[in-house]
Amino acid sequence: MITLEQAQTMINVALAKGVEEGWKPLSAVVLDAGGNMQAFARGDGAAPGRFDVARAKAYGAVMLGMGGKAQMARAEAQAYFMAAVNGIYGGQTCPVPGGVLIRDASGAVIGAMGVTGDTSDNDAEAALAGIAAAGLSGEA
């Protein structure tokens, strides 16, 4: 289980990472293992539509059990499958980096974090920094 304190730490650190690196304003969401939103924040200056992108990145990760980088590779190799999966989930997935699985100390998936606003690789880097700051492991 991800506590609210951990979720807020992940988000705060991810957004701060973007500011420190001089990236475009980030937005971040943390979902539990069932895909339910636990916390969200939109950085100062971030586009208002970023919630949906961050959530879709995280939702795809937790529902498929694979991070955004693996989803993107799968989409490139099996576009039909990933399009079908996105249809199954009502268009709620976004198979690109920035959707990161969150694992506990035993390796169990306990949720996912989605970050958006800069390049997908930078989004993933920010998510990983936030997850590590909360004492958990991330799989981009």
Rank of each mutant, 00 (worst) to 15 (best):
Q92E: 09
L128W: 00
G138W: 01
L128I: 13
A75M: 14
W23R: 07
S27Y: 02
A112R: 05
I2M: 05
A129N: 08
G99V: 03
G111C: 03
W23A: 00
A112Y: 05
L4N: 11
A77F: 13
P97M: 12
M66A: 08
G65S: 06
Y80G: 09
E5Y: 09
M10I: 08
M37R: 06
V29Q: 05
A77S: 11
V19M: 00
I102T: 05
V109F: 07
P25S: 15
A61D: 02
L64C: 09
V100M: 08
M72A: 03
I102H: 02
A73E: 12
D118N: 11
V29W: 04
T116W: 02
G107I: 11
D104R: 06
T3S: 10
E21M: 14
I88A: 13
V13W: 00
M113D: 06
A105V: 13
E76W: 09
P48S: 14
E125A: 09
G65A: 07
G65Y: 04
L4P: 06
T9K: 02
G65M: 08
A77I: 11
G117R: 05
R55F: 15
A58K: 03
V115W: 09
Q38Y: 08
D121C: 10
M10G: 01
G43E: 07
P95H: 09
G99N: 06
V85N: 09
C94Q: 10
R74L: 11
R103C: 05
G22V: 10
G65L: 03
T9N: 04
A56P: 02
A7C: 08
L31Y: 06
T9F: 07
D32V: 07
V85K: 10
M1K: 10
